[in-house]
């Protein structure tokens, strides 16, 4: 599998989409740092990218990669390799390349501007932004692969990708708001915490926001979250949930991939 992965990387790093993706973050982050020398403000803007653009691009590019390499997968499958290795190599090839594009795009300007930064360098904040972004990539590429394995039809596949994206970034939060309004006479502190913790996009958003200035606006609810994240249990849980959301679609996709006819 590792050999396969090596060539996946050869292929991916020359992919123009990955290059665009990297340049997008590089230019965006650089210009943000150019205008403000405060990492916290840069993170506040980048956070929107992490919870919206990264999932979307991971989903779209992930499905494109998978559909585009269908015939090559066929060729590989006729070689003496097992399907699991192919699937993992493909997944890691895509997800690591996308992560690298994001990570370098966001990290290089930070390191470059580090000397000119005013006030706190916010290492932990920046690290948590990056970790969140990488997780988003792993999770939503896994979803993309799952979708591309499930749907033969490209159009359906893209439709499903958009739907998954909308569900996690938009619809899910709508449901939370509905619950908050509809069940207002219930003690919702814990349920809302748990519900948010089940959505990786919400975890990333809340986790980063809690370290920003605006966390004061979150008031009592925010304090509950903050307290939760301050414990090892909270950190472990949110980390665990992220891992589960990576592993779940990945295994489901692999399961389907193993049974799939080419």
């Amino acid at each position: 599998m590792l050999k396969l992965l090596k060539y996946e990387f050869y292929n991916m790093f020359r992919n123009k989409w990955i290059l665009f993706y990297f340049l997008f973050f590089l230019i965006l982050t650089s210009s943000l740092f150019y205008f403000t020398k405060e990492p916290a403000k840069v993170v506040a803007t980048l956070l929107q990218m992490v919870i919206l653009v990264v999932p979307l691009i991971s989903l779209i590019l992930g499905t494109i990669f998978m559909y585009d390499s269908r015939n090559f997968i066929e060729l590989l499958l006729s070689q003496p390799i097992n399907r699991k290795s192919i699937y993992f190599a493909k997944y890691l090839g895509a997800t690591v390349s996308l992560s690298a594009g994001f990570l370098l795009g966001v990290l290089l300007p930070y390191l470059f501007f580090l000397r000119q930064i005013e006030g706190s360098a916010e290492y932990f904040l920046y690290a948590s932004l990056i970790v969140s972004g990488v997780f988003m990539t792993f999770i939503f590429t896994a979803f993309a692969f799952l979708i591309a394995t499930f749907f033969e039809d490209r159009v359906k596949g893209f439709g499903a990708s958009i739907l998954v994206w909308l569900y996690f970034t938009l619809i899910y939060d709508g449901i939370i708001l509905f619950i908050i309004i509809y069940f207002q006479q219930y003690p919702l502190e814990k349920p809302v915490l748990v519900l948010s913790m089940l959505n990786p996009v919400d975890i990333a958003r809340i986790f980063v926001i809690l370290q920003l200035d605006i966390s004061a606006l979150l008031g009592y609810t925010g304090t509950i979250f903050k307290k939760f994240f301050d414990t090892w249990l909270g950190m472990a849980t949110s980390f665990g949930v992220m891992v589960v959301w990576t592993v779940l679609p990945l295994t489901l996709g692999l399961w389907k991939f193993k049974k799939k006819d080419f």
Partner: peptide, 20 residues
């Protein structure tokens, strides 16, 4: 309006849903 009436909804700060 929502944050004032249902304080917990503040947890959706910066959610895409809120922009929409």
């Amino acid at each position: 309006y929502f944050t004032e009436n249902y304080p917990q909804s503040i947890i959706l700060t910066r959610s895409f849903f809120i922009y929409v």
